[in-house]
Simulated assay, not measured.
Amino acid sequence: MRARKTAAIATIGCAAALGLAAPAAAADAAPTISAPASRNGFGPITIAGTAPAGKTVELYESAYKFNDFYRSPNYTGGGYVTTTASASGRYELSRDLDSGFRFYVVVDGVASNRISVAMGIVPTMTMSASNGTVDVSVTADPSQPGLPVHIQQSTGSGWTNVAGGVTVGDAAIFSTTLSGQGTGTKSYRAVIDADSINNLLAGHTETVSINVGSGSGSGGGSTPTTPTTPTTPTTPTKPSTPAAAAPKAGDVQFTKIVYNSPGADNGSNTSLNAEYVRMTNRTNKTINLKGWTIRDAAGHVYTIATDQKISAGRTAYVHTGKGTNGRPDSGHRYWNRTGYIWNNSGDTAYLRSPAGKSIDSCKWTSNKNQTYC
């Protein structure tokens, strides 16, 4: 918040950064947006709508959990996701989903309605058996740890839970061993519960039949649906955590930096903490930011000294002032400075891995209060 400019300028800049402006002269000038209500597993959706012919359409997005919109980055071509409305006033965009998301579009500063798109969880289960003991492994798409899993056995008239637990690790795997399964061919399936916070829909695998004396089988996910109400799950066998791959440029990105906190420039801790950077995990795996650094152009450095895990598509914040890491939730950390870090009139934020590898940077050259990088 160094070299602060007037509150009026900051207010105008904030409105521009959020893609908001005065209402259009005519109601029919406002763009519209629509998309499928959901898709199953990681992959693209088509976003479509109407807009004035020939106008540029800008896409804004937010992870469902945070409801904190920013301009949608173009991960392949750089910049942001935009398109041009056709002569008939139609447009289409494609966007990959790795969780539940929210969207709207902006045309000439006028925002459309807002929509949300859910994601159906698609589990895959593999099984092997010997002498009445069945080893089970379940993976979830999207790869999100902490999802409740239930292994169910067919009883002819329905399904009965025989084991349960949660997905763990970056690969979102649940493993367990079923003992005392007897002899002959038995049928099983895996059910993963919904996650309403992230707008994930429940899903289950196809039925997998296996000779429990000696055999193997596998099955992929079916269309997500509401599973049978589970009983209390048993404690799963915890698998070994796979080694994490080295981070690469773009895996985590700055998606919002408030470099000029609102209100009086009085240096209070409240004002300092209103200045912050937001980082988003752009992969489909959980990333631990322990040992990563954030620095400005003047060389001030903040090191993330303890575990700071970001799940796929999720965000973490570093506030300038003093506070307790993990409050108000696990996504917030504090630089513990007594003065502002970011220069209003122009600065650059740098994000580096523990090995010093450049992961992302965000530069601004004018005072608009905040930037979405």
Rank of each mutant, 00 (worst) to 15 (best):
P328M: 04
V168W: 08
T237V: 14
P36H: 10
K55V: 06
S271N: 12
D195M: 00
F69Q: 04
Y80I: 15
G146I: 04
G164K: 00
V81T: 03
P52R: 03
G77M: 11
W159Y: 09
D96F: 15
T50V: 11
D96N: 15
G220N: 14
R95M: 09
A194M: 07
N131I: 12
Q181A: 05
A305K: 14
E58Q: 14
I341W: 07
S130L: 12
R95N: 13
A48Y: 06
T324D: 04
T226I: 15
G326M: 05
G323L: 01
T348M: 09
K5T: 11
N284F: 02
G89A: 09
N288I: 08
G291W: 01
A111I: 04
T228A: 13
C14V: 14
T205C: 02
T303A: 02
G180E: 03
T283N: 09
G356W: 09
T32Y: 05
T241G: 05
G213L: 06
S209G: 09
L201D: 01
A7P: 07
E58C: 11
S128I: 11
S218D: 08
R278S: 08
A22E: 14
I287K: 00
G19P: 00
T303G: 03
T255I: 14
H204C: 10
F69W: 06
K285G: 04
A51V: 06
S157M: 12
A27C: 07
R95Q: 14
